[in-house]
Design a binder for these strands. Structure first.
Lengths: 317, 317
DNA sequence: GGTTGCCATAGATAGGAAGTATTGGACGAT
DNA sequence: ATCGTCCAATACTTCCTATCTATGGCAACC
């Protein structure tokens, strides 16, 4: 199917919708009124439905027209934003992206985020800082970080986030544990034995949610060991302090293994977050890209075989 | 500023990026190769930076080009989607939107959502169902609802949601309560007196989060009365069962009033949710629109003074 | 009944998108 | 080396169409 609408049309439509008047819209566009009328009419013909109703009292949108007008606004804004970012890339003006991440975010996930960033913003630098959930959020607030990868939930207003991963929770145990013989663990078998948890202070909302989910399936956890990192949790399991819940994708120490809980499909969700009024040029485009990756199918384009910088190439030539 | 890129360019760019070859891209576009080359070159000139690197071994994207290519994909897809939806509106083929909402969602919020929907999909019907959080989510899952307005947090994978409101929590009390004399309530004054809560079963995750937030500020609530609706909560406060937390925007019964808690800025967040693979045509466009409303400034276009249906008008004329 | 405001139509024109033919550069095979 | 192949760029022509000016039609307002 060919392109029905051009950006030119969107600009014209918007001018007409905003002025409610072909003549004034044409003036604003530095265009003769008949040219504008003709363009809109052509477009309406190819689309197969009218966008505007011309009426003695003025020009109004049809229902379908409202949708096109609303689309025109965002499509034009998006184009401007994209061109600005692309130009900044070309000029090497993208500032370093200061990315925070919780130590509970899987390394492969961090890497695939870095890959996505590198695909969108090649040759742009990224500075990593790890920390616990609340700490990272605080640094985002005070703008010493531009964005972060954090486990959900992310509570509070003034955050923009986009979920980028979701992975099952499993019970982490020693391989010599009797439960390791089973393929799935029954919830009842966990009561009393599930004792190792992430320190609630690291991420209060996630802890609360977990406790609640556990009580819903009648697992009564005995919170006795608190850990600040996944490595510490593994150490505690290894040391025999009890069982813990873990992201299935965690690479476990030798001597440890993971088992799903029967009938339960809890997940660890990770999101890319940035503050509402953070101003790093890459953020809106990054979020849009991550959203596309999440909803759509993977991109099927030939990979770049050569790695060449746009501007630098010219300067060296 | 004028339009730099046209959709035609995006289509061309995409073809070149996907084939990695101007000649084959031109074939795919039913275009002569020099025409394609010229168009891309023109675009690169107006943009001010190269999109592709022509190389003996093939054609590759520059860094800035990668961004444009990625944009081209989504922009073209979005246009197609929008035109499809607009055409469906014109033909009156938009099915009724079955919207669920929690009874804890404010009526004005529901109304402004209905307004937004009416603006995007004029003359399209909406069917409302209220219920509690878990119930609504379940109905979304089994596809007896298309979308819903629910208080956050919304846990679990396979939901698409967009936060649409955020409003402060206040303490709800009788106007003859001694605390009503104060402008702000101190957290310590709430211990023992905060006793009325939403039934945890209505929304387990929200209850858990609230309990956690309370304990963080050393308020130890005594959960003694459980209500299924805001009206029930108000009744209980009126009956003297204790104090409750409420959305500040709730229209209170006579004899009741709300007061903020000193030093605390908790909020009630509401989101529009739909299931990952719900197929109602309006959903992706609705989410995009809500997102725009949230991030951007309000639209400043003359309102439609007349309410006319596109198709019907022609048929009647 | 004249004037004004506004959109549509008619016809002319110029700009530019697309086409054809050709050149030039880089490999690879003989 | 030399020829053949592949591929993008250049040169030049053609034709479409976006734009222009001028005008017509229609309703509303003095």
């Amino acid at each position: 199917m060919s392109v029905l609408i051009e950006f030119r049309h969107l600009k014209y439509i918007l001018a007409v919708a905003e002025t409610g008047n072909f003549t004034r819209a044409a003036e604003r566009l530095f265009l003769a009124q008949p040219s504008l009328s003709a363009q809109i009419k052509d477009l309406e013909d190819t689309l197969g439905f009218p966008i505007f109703l011309r009426d003695r009292t003025g020009v109004y949108c049809t229902p379908a027209g409202e949708m096109i007008v609303s689309y025109a606004e965002s499509a034009l804004a998006e184009q401007t934003e994209t061109v600005k970012a692309a130009r900044a890339i070309y000029r090497g003006e993208i500032p370093i992206l200061r990315l925070g991440f919780s130590c509970f975010v899987q390394p492969e996930l961090l890497q695939s985020f870095r890959d996505a960033y590198a695909r969108l913003f090649p040759d742009c630098q990224m500075q990593l800082s790890s920390g616990n959930h609340s700490h990272i959020l605080h640094r985002l607030e005070e703008k010493s970080l531009d964005g972060a990868l954090l486990p959900m939930p992310i509570t509070g207003d003034d955050w923009v986030f986009e979920q980028i991963a979701c992975s099952p929770l499993v019970v982490c145990m020693r391989t010599d544990d009797p439960l390791a013989e089973e393929i799935e663990i029954q919830p009842a078998e966990l009561t009393e034995r599930l004792t190792i948890f992430r320190d609630p202070e690291m991420h209060p909302a996630a802890h609360a949610r977990l406790m609640n989910m556990l009580s819903e399936v009648k697992i009564l956890p005995k919170v006795s060991s608190l850990a600040a990192t996944p490595a510490d949790i593994q150490f505690m399991v290894q040391a025999g302090c009890g069982l813990a819940l873990m992201d299935q994708r965690t690479v476990l120490y030798p001597g440890l293994t993971g088992r799903p809980i029967a009938g339960i499909r809890w997940t660890v969700d990770t999101a890319f977050v940035h503050h509402n009024n953070a101003e790093h040029l890459a953020l809106p485009i990054l979020v849009r890209y991550l959203r596309k990756l999440g909803n759509g199918k993977p991109l099927k384009r030939p990979a770049r075989r050569k790695h060449v910088k746009g501007l630098q190439l010219e300067l060296l030539a």
